[in-house]
Design a protein around this nucleic acid. Structure first.
Lengths: 336, 336
DNA sequence: TTGTAGGCGTTATCAG
DNA sequence: CTGATAACGCCTACAA
């Protein structure tokens, strides 16, 4: 026996498919008794309305997509959690796509999504240095989307980020206040939005403190662990920084690992602070000072904007920038 | 203008819908020239075959579901990564459901999935102490599923786990070899599969070392942070263990946090080892000794079993248990 | 190689 | 309150 459909159920009950269908919609009128009878029989036979048929009929999927660069990352898992919560409360399902920071995969996912699979998209982008024309399919299909944390400057949509400039300034300032005179800034790519803005905060803080910014102290890293270690080594021994400000968690971790290997004492020899959503930052050796973004809220906020647009039947989200506050948590790694 | 469908495209080209459809299927024959023309026009108009219509027609969704208890957890993110890799290579999409360790949400998700949304399910379960009848809808719908890491004893399906008994035995033995005579075992729920099997490994190792197992040293914790701390405090000061074996990562972290607060020195006062997939276990204070499961491989293996079943058109997965090897990594927290 | 036609399962509309 | 019908968009026999 194959899976039961509405027709079988209707026949079994001596009713029409329309009546059965009505038992499953909230609105249409139907006698309480019949409804009861139908639902019981449905439960007994294991009937559930076929999702794809319903979606086809209604031209909607009640599904959104989330596109993120990484997965095993506290910021994203918390943000996704926030998104999911809002999505569920709106009765929506969630499809997660992980690009592994690969711009081509991102483009492929977006293309794939264009088939009507989802009604909206939340994304944190991976390929700022490339062309973003592929996002056009979303516009063409009237699929609204929202950026969170990482966005494309040249694409219009709501962007939800933390107050990166201010917290970057504050973090740098914090190191300087604790005696640092040569703070290095670690960044994955200083030309992408997130690296750029945080860089600006760092530079301004250095300048405002009356120190001379040194280009060499802006250390560009990659996503490759080996390569990162190499850059760190070279930077540390050539430039002799006394403080490190990591623009993303991974680089703060890399700095820690490097110091552990080399026997560099934190904070005595080198003070460290970094953007991070790590819940166990306090258990590291030593406790890592962090700038912590409101990841969950960022996700939830971005989702809320998306569902607003969906509810209003908008084809895109407003071209505006929403900023939430990060907090700076001082721990042992950065204080004298 | 609304989204283009196959009919509009066909009209525009002066072709029939069947011909257009053929251009998008690999198999059916069609002249290379027409196909080319169709694909170009499709790209220009932004046409893509509607997913829901195709799925309805074909009665398949090329989508699987992953159900996990938690999300912000290294084991699961790595396992999910492994699953996604296999899924993508099979051309499948992935829907992730997070239960937050809530059995009712799990049941709700499963019910929800029964509408034909997915062709198969991979799950790590949350509600072992309850009834599992709700999984019947999957059987009824011929949706095969595979358990990974956490499973239900009373439900038949392939289970993919690590060799938990052996590594639990080894971890306990390791503490004893390092001088512990009173090893406490931390568990969330000692009656569920994962807690039970690991408990057995612990007990056997204690006995085989000629020590007297002490029921009180098996400390049952909950998922609540406050509550965990309370139990740890009571256990530590009343029982004076000299070693802790945490059956899950969260409890190892809780133990660390407790020791930090109380000024208990690890490993001098208390040695610690725990199941964990934490990538920065070496950066903790002190470096945490771990039993690390092959998370990625477990996910990938489970997914492979599922796709095998799908490919063969099976209605369920074989009732067998696949075991992968965990590794024990000694760091500072457990050695003299 | 291309076109015709019917149906996948559901639900909104209209009629009774 | 219930039933018949058509359409959502696509794909595959079958016919030409």
């Amino acid at each position: 026996m194959d899976t039961v459909n509405i027709k079988m159920l209707a026949e079994r009950l001596g009713l029409s498919t329309s009546t059965v269908s009505r038992a499953f919609r909230g609105n249409s009128d139907i006698s309480a008794k019949t409804k009861q009878r139908i639902l019981e029989a449905a439960a007994a036979m294991g009937y559930q309305p076929n999702l794809y048929a319903s979606n086809l009929r209604d031209r909607k999927s009640r599904t959104i997509a989330i596109i993120v660069p990484e997965f095993a990352n506290n910021f994203f898992s918390q943000a996704i959690h926030g998104i999911e919560k809002v999505a569920r409360s709106n009765g929506y399902h969630t499809l997660i796509y992980v690009t592994d920071d690969d711009y081509e995969r991102e483009a492929a996912f977006v293309a794939d999504i264009g088939n009507g699979r989802v009604e909206g998209v939340l994304m944190s982008v991976s390929g700022e240095e490339y062309q973003h024309g592929y996002l056009g399919v979303l516009a063409k299909r009237n699929i609204p989307f929202v950026f969170f944390d990482r966005y494309y400057d040249d694409v219009q949509a709501t962007r939800v980020t933390a107050n990166d400039y201010a917290s970057s300034y504050a973090a740098t300032r914090h190191l300087i206040d604790n005696g640092c005179t040569r703070v290095a800034y670690l960044v994955v790519n200083k030309h992408v939005s997130i690296g750029k803005i945080r860089l600006q905060g760092y530079l301004d803080a250095v300048r405002d403190a009356g120190q001379q910014p040194d280009d060499a102290l802006v250390v560009e890293c990659t996503n490759d662990r080996q390569e990162i270690e190499h850059r760190l080594r070279s930077a540390y021994y050539n430039l002799r920084p006394d403080g490190i400000f990591a623009s993303v968690e991974r680089l703060a971790i890399a700095a820690y690992r490097f110091c552990h290997q080399e026997g560099i004492a934190i904070p005595a020899d080198l003070k460290v602070i970094g953007f991070s959503s790590l819940e166990i930052a306090d258990l590291l050796n030593p406790g890592l000072s962090t700038v912590t973004q409101p990841a969950f809220d960022m996700g939830a906020t971005a989702a809320t904007v998306l569902f607003d647009a969906l509810a209003k039947g908008l084809k895109s989200t407003p071209d505006e920038h929403i900023t939430l506050e990060s907090i700076l948590i001082e721990r042992e790694s950065s204080v004298t």
